[in-house]
């Protein structure tokens, strides 16, 4: 009964630890170290509701899925909404998508308490041992929501022209500190009365040296520029940690 129970529990977790009756024996450490060459680079994708985070994630999966081993964690407040979108879009094997519940607080799940997201990343790493990249897509939130560095190695903040050309000027940690700011839906700029020159100038002024990309998934469904940026992050991660141990 006892042995059976233990077997069951370990089976659920996908790893095993023999019971050792020697009190001086230390067990193996099942947790990945904070930064290891054997783990994939984790890129956070955040931004306000409706700015196009999921569409960008789908485009990146479509463009990079054949050249990189990648997986996605989604944090939509409606839990499975984004995961379902990605599964139906057919851009990724459903096993490579994990959805987490955020308890109605999307920023908490990516910043203050990253437990559920780390669990999801670890499940994906256990399932696919040679992942290059995990995209962690935040639920739509406000301009102050950023990813914890304990969860995302680098992060993308997505805003869109329809949200108003004042957004970059308003600042907030998302706009000012994300490693890449994507100004999305630029094809709509004229129709919503957004001044692209002002928007991009504001973005650069607020962000100093940090990268800014203007993007339209209608005109470029492959999200080519953002995909190139992601490729560079993967390459830099590999160079920084040396050849993969796996």
């Amino acid at each position: 009964m006892q042995a059976e129970h233990q077997h069951h529990v370990h089976g659920q977790n996908g790893h095993r630890h023999p019971v050792d009756f020697d009190p001086t024996a230390a067990g193996p450490d099942p947790f990945a170290p904070a930064a290891s060459g054997s783990r994939p680079v984790r890129i956070g994708i955040g931004g306000p509701v409706g700015s196009g985070k999921t569409a960008l994630t789908a485009a990146l999966c479509r463009t990079l899925g054949s050249e990189l081993e990648l997986a996605v964690v989604t944090n939509d407040i409606y839990t499975t909404e984004d995961a379902d979108f990605l599964r139906q879009a057919g851009v990724l094997d459903p096993g490579r998508i994990e959805a987490v519940q955020t308890g109605a607080c999307p920023h908490t799940a990516i910043r203050d308490d990253i437990t559920a997201n780390l669990d999801a990343v670890e499940r994906l790493q256990q399932r696919y041992a040679s992942l290059d990249l995990v995209l962690v897509e935040s639920g739509g939130d406000n301009l102050t929501a950023v990813f914890s560095r304990g969860l995302a190695d680098v992060q993308v903040f997505v805003v869109d022209v329809a949200g108003g050309d004042k957004v970059p000027r308003k600042g907030g940690p998302g706009v000012t500190t994300a490693d890449l700011l994507v100004v999305n839906k630029v094809d709509l700029a004229e129709r919503v009365g957004a001044d692209m020159a002002v928007m991009l100038a504001d973005a650069h002024r607020m962000r100093g040296e940090l990268a800014v990309l203007a993007q339209s998934l209608t005109e470029d469904p492959a999200a080519s520029a953002t995909a190139d940026w992601v490729r560079r992050q993967v390459a830099e991660h590999r160079a920084a940690v040396g050849p993969s141990a796996e």
Binding site: V100, Q101, T102, G103, C105, A109, D112, D113, T115
Partner: peptide, 11 residues
């Protein structure tokens, strides 16, 4: 409640 142990997502 701010202890980062994953409790915030459970009701």
């Amino acid at each position: 409640s701010r202890f980062p142990g994953g409790g915030h997502a459970h009701s």
